[in-house]
Nucleic acid binder design. Structure first.
Lengths: 154, 154
DNA sequence: TTGACAAAAGAGAATAAATCTCGTTTAATA
DNA sequence: TATTAAACGAGATTTATTCTCTTTTGTCAA
């Protein structure tokens, strides 16, 4: 749980951004966002639903998913990492990293030697044992970059 | 597609490891692994199924999933990133990284300032535009490390 | 070799996560 | 305060994955 002033600030910004984006200011949307803004635990949609129902018992799961989707699209929320989509497999057991295209979801390898070693400067949450670090570089592959450009130009 | 010698090498290692692990040497398992070893595109289980059926038309999707699961468990395959599991949300829009516990799937933030900036040393695949880099540090949180230790001791 | 037994396969039902459809309600604004 | 587009609730649908159960196939010792 974050402190009240911080949350109030986030809510104010949220309402501004919604207005700018033409998103209606519904009670459900407010409560869904507030629930996320208050949490530090990166909840799943189901968990958000569970918490929001305490405030709005009649809310539907579909509304939670719909709002999460819209808010992620508009950049008001983020997803942790990329893949809730189907599992992607990798026969390459050596330590390496990945490039993921945000549009077509293609995955390419980056050899470990091609990335400066990842170094954590600060203390980790008490007792966390890191086993491996993966860098996920997200962006657009050449093909998708071109397609997006074409779409924008007509 | 990788070159034939490399694949042959992987298949030999694979058979050795299977024998060591007591995994039966079935035709289906061989073909599933070979299909993955040949690919450079990080296919989904469905895609693996599609390709394997060209060699073994009668294979079932369940067999593909079952083998993928076993091989990942035994460390003969890897999953790209972590989450095929439910979407995890993040209201923190500032640039930051994540610690993920491989056992309980809890997610904790690492502030961007606490990680040395990620630097790519080599050229990326032609034309890939990186928009953001996320470091995913995987391991065990304190609670899970303790539970695993306890389980092992009796 | 062959026979016993555990491991794995195939078929298809079941579950979980997410999305969609459609009739109704609500917020924005004129 | 009337209009209308946006959003809601309910529940069906789709997609990804796992499970159950019966049959088949490897493995290994006699």
């Amino acid at each position: 749980m974050r402190d009240a002033a911080e949350i109030q600030h986030r809510m104010t910004l949220f309402q501004q951004r919604c207005a700018e984006l033409g998103l209606a200011n519904t009670h459900q949307r407010q409560v869904i966002f507030r629930t996320l803004a208050e949490s530090t635990s990166h909840p799943t949609p189901e968990e958000v639903y569970r918490r929001v129902r305490k405030k709005i018992p009649s809310i539907s799961l579909g509304t939670v998913y719909r709002n999460i989707k819209i808010l992620v699209q508009k950049g008001l929320l983020k997803e942790v990492a990329v893949h809730h989509e189907p599992l992607r497999l990798d026969p390459n057991l050596s330590d390496h990293h990945h490039l993921v295209c945000r549009r077509c979801k293609s995955v390419a390898d980056i050899a470990s030697e091609d990335v400066e070693p990842v170094r954590l400067k600060a203390a980790l949450p008490a007792g966390f044992q890191v086993e491996r670090c993966e860098v996920v570089a997200m962006g657009l592959c050449a093909a998708c970059a071109m397609k997006l450009k074409q779409n924008r130009s007509h």
